[in-house]
Design a protein around this nucleic acid. Structure first.
Lengths: 241, 241
DNA sequence: TTAGTAAATAACTGATGGTTAGTAAAATTG
DNA sequence: CAATTTTACTAACCATCAGTTATTTACTAA
């Protein structure tokens, strides 16, 4: 059935087009500030047509959020492949989250807001979003388990709990950074410092005590980022400037 | 001027009455699900009258949020008075946050949602809310400083950053607990365990390494809560039940 | 009693999420 | 090719709700 096939394809394209338009607008303004009418204008369709493709505004928003989660999941998955000790993988995943927040700040914003009570979540996308985010957490959990096995992570840690705590903290730190920007900068820290220093802060909570400070700097450096290295000296440099 | 005085008092009472009604409704349902009309019905006033006392819906919501923040601030302040080592004070403040989330889960919910992009924050209450929350963070910061001085907290920690990380993490853990409840319980943890274990998890990030595990259990116990004590043995008891 | 003020309201406006009834074009059928 | 059905789309509409305006009521002070 070539015709039905083509129709299906076209329908998919329409849907993509609508999500594109919605994304563009949701990126530029808050959820409540974007109207369905406006999105419709953007794709050059009637508002009612959008409702043929998406149950409601929330569902459309969720579709955009899902794109973001898919990217995040991709980044987390890439960390698993790395041949490294558990603790390094954990750090890499934290780094992945951070890079995601740098490369796609708008996706992060939408993901964060979607996690809010504002959304009822009774829509098909939500399950997928939850699964995607859950997958990230599981990848982190696996890395923690590996770290416990190879002795780089505290053995008394419960991998599930630790992964939850880290995911929640990551999300908190990264999405709060904007809100507290002024306070942070008033204290003489850049946004980058603020998030990077968090890794240094949290590391002793997961790494085995004996090795933590000694080994990390070298091992992490070989993976292309400096966690414990040159952060200290230039810390707070702006403060008394 | 007795009359003007009474009038002022009555006006204040009206305002309080309106906030009471709003609180009642915002506690029972989401922000978007509560209409001004409904709040007006609750206080037995006309909707327009509410607008004589509050600029808009957000401002009214903020007034409720402010009540919650005031309580939280009170709890944090109480911790400062305690005669204890810095690390213990920090733990007490974490505990205070937790108890707040138990005693006033609705206030916590509103505070968390008010921190969202949903609100423009261009209203007089917001400054006070920010100040209140900021005060809590400062109290925590002071406790951290004390801990560094008395040797119970890592000396290489920046008090400002550490206080930010802790506040953000606290808020995240406590407000996420609801959302992830099912996942958490599916893993065999109760909500209480989930939050309590977080303290155990985060402690090594702030306490000086040498003493952390040894001293805490005793010292904390004397302040009426068990942080590191009996949590481990009964952990995950439900999981394979 | 009356003039003036403050508190409160009924009725309205504008915007928006979502629905309905209907149209036009493409695909299918005979 | 003509008749019929299916599909994609739309104009007009509805209900709700935040916020405003014009007006009325209640109280005070002279």
């Amino acid at each position: 059935m070539g015709v039905a096939d083509r129709r299906q394809r076209e329908k998919e394209q329409r849907k993509t087009g609508i999500i594109d338009a919605a994304e563009c607008l949701f990126f530029s303004r808050n959820y409540e500030e974007v109207s369905m009418e406006e999105i419709a204008r953007e794709v050059e369709l009637n508002k009612a047509t959008i409702y043929l493709y998406f149950e409601n505004k929330e569902a459309l928003y969720a579709a955009v959020v899902l794109r973001g989660v898919a990217i995040l999941k991709e980044k987390f998955s890439a960390c698993r492949e790395q041949k490294a000790q558990g603790i390094v993988k954990v750090a890499l995943m934290g780094q992945a989250y951070y890079r995601f927040s740098q490369e796609y700040p708008q996706y992060l914003r939408l993901i964060h807001f979607y996690g809010t009570e504002r959304f009822s979540k009774e829509n098909p996308c939500t399950a997928e979003i939850g699964k995607g985010y859950g997958t990230c957490r599981l990848l982190l959990q696996d890395a923690i388990r590996e770290g416990i096995d190879d002795g780089t992570i505290r053995a008394d840690l419960d991998p599930f709990l630790a992964s939850m705590y880290l995911m929640i903290s990551f999300m908190g730190i990264l999405s709060m950074e904007n809100k507290w920007k002024l306070v942070i900068e008033a204290e003489g820290f850049s946004s980058g410092q603020f998030t990077q220093e968090f890794f240094r802060f949290i590391l002793p909570a997961i790494s085995t005590h004996e090795k933590s400070h000694a080994m990390d700097a070298k091992d992490f450096a070989s993976f292309g980022f400096s966690l414990t290295g040159p952060v200290e000296p230039e810390k707070k440099n702006q403060k008394n400037a």
